[in-house]
Nucleic acid binder design. Sequence first.
DNA 1: CTGTTAGCGCTTTCAT
DNA 2: ATGAAAGCGCTAACAG
Lengths: 355, 355
Amino acid sequence: MSAARPAPLTGPPVRRTRLVDVADATGLDVSTVSRVLNSDPRQTVRAETRARVLATAARLGYRPNALARALKQSRSNALALVVPMVRNPIWSVVERGALDRAAERGCAVLVVSEPTDRPRPPAAYQAMVLESRVDGLVLATTLRPRGGAGGDLPVPHVYLNRRGPRPGHDVVMDEEGAVGLWVQEMGRQGRRDLVLLDGPQDVDTVHRRARAAGFAGDGATGTRVRMVHAPATEHGGWTAAVRLFSDPRPPDGIGVGSLPQLTGLVAAIRSCGIAVPTALGLVSFDEDASLSYLGMPVTSVAMPLAELGAAGVDALLDQVDGRSPHDVLVAGPMRLVRHEPAPLPRRGSTRSAPP
Amino acid sequence: MSAARPAPLTGPPVRRTRLVDVADATGLDVSTVSRVLNSDPRQTVRAETRARVLATAARLGYRPNALARALKQSRSNALALVVPMVRNPIWSVVERGALDRAAERGCAVLVVSEPTDRPRPPAAYQAMVLESRVDGLVLATTLRPRGGAGGDLPVPHVYLNRRGPRPGHDVVMDEEGAVGLWVQEMGRQGRRDLVLLDGPQDVDTVHRRARAAGFAGDGATGTRVRMVHAPATEHGGWTAAVRLFSDPRPPDGIGVGSLPQLTGLVAAIRSCGIAVPTALGLVSFDEDASLSYLGMPVTSVAMPLAELGAAGVDALLDQVDGRSPHDVLVAGPMRLVRHEPAPLPRRGSTRSAPP
DNA sequence: CTGTTAGCGCTTTCAT
DNA sequence: ATGAAAGCGCTAACAG
């Protein structure tokens, strides 16, 4: 494992430069140095002094001690992002949106992954605020709250991609609009017998999509929408799909709530020999690059996931800054993305990809 | 968005209970309370006093201020985990292993996602330590370091799943062993013409697997192993595979370094009409539940990912505690997992799944 | 314009 | 067995 690599060379642990070190080196007082470094709005500092401080700080590689600053200011400039530990890759997009926005706003992020097999009540995370580790919570746990009682967090927080026990703290996307886009697309393709295959009812996004699906049927066009709930896993999707296809009257259009379910569904479609898109139209509510490699055309409703994460951070920091909490609907951009299977280059071999 | 939900009820921001509050409530001094709450090893506290403090602290819902404690002790009990922001779901397993172990050891984790499109040198993260936000760094960025120069971090750190510029800070898995398992499995199936399809050469794990593959050829059995590098994406896997299959002598066994590449490869296999497992054996170096739903049998080498994350945290905390750095090889458990396509229940419909 | 001063909440000698 | 006091590194009045 070594060979050409240089020797271990373990230097002494780094000596942190403090404000007082910069003060001593410049012959000024710490308060003056602090003023300069924080670019105090009412700058009453001589340009020459200013320059000297800046130069010295740079030379000594001074970095302010975030702990001391936070302690003094009663503000940690950090926030906790609680995300469910699921395999669905969409969360990484949300996370990225949140992390980027937080970084823009000078805020560190503590990511807390909640194991889905042992979910904890939101109140369990409020300790992080009480311990001053973070200024507030972005709660992206999936479960809908049981009752309204006990659910009030006395610390700054927002619920991300789900609604909390009371309004005023919800940052969600337009799931109803997404369902609308799906139904509309299916109608455009002349499909009338739709199924929305999604996760368990107690996941808030599912709940909202199911509700929208309930209203989406249309007597005039003869469109009907059935709801099928299954675990948000490959196996859940597979099982539900197999059952659907053994139905006397299988759907001619399916919307799928999560990528793992879609994987299972696609496997079932292949096993059952269903023709896509001839006999069945497929729409995923998660957009992902892998959709072009399923061997059959799939359309996705691309949701504004990164924007959701960013909006969550913004809404939370608003509360931390003392503004009163408010619900946020992350509306756009939301659009249909068509994924055709990649075509073989030039002369294909044995047989070509499905249309 | 409201309907049946209760009113907003925004309580006043929580008033944090401080040590002095507990002291006042008990009539004791803060130092005494501190001793009790930290269960000072040389307990010189009366049992009655002890009980009273504990009761009062519990009643007031006292939570120690992590900032103040960290400032005093010059130790934040937090660490940063720098992970590449890739879509490969294996990282979430590593992350979970790390988070769980850190929680066990009373340590908060700041997750920093590094965008792969703009990688930063490890030194960029050392600021988090210099600012006392964290005690050390777990660096899981994928790129191999350029030169040995400049790569020395004067702060506690480990490289996770990759080697750093010098030995002594590496926590890696047995990639050579994994390649060995693959070759061995292929041999058992009577396959002799193998290809290892993996990511770019400058990813350290890829580098090590490629090296192992180079030694894996065997004149005695007539086994040869070719190396194919491609971007670690669906498209990368697809393109490389299409090229392989148009070869006069395509391989009869393929190992794939990442899940996205496997997705592309499987699409190509289907498009080109290659028979699996008859004409081709497939092994993935990432284990995932979705492998059972590809419509063809795939074997995976299940790597000890959670253990890797945990070992990274342990190795880092060792350094933080002043022990001298050392390389860690996370050996096991590592095993082959066979994934057969799920069978249709009872009477299958039109046609059944591929063998 | 710059320095003095008083803490933020906690731990940790050192006294008593 | 408990209390007093110093101080971690920084910011923010208030003086000068």
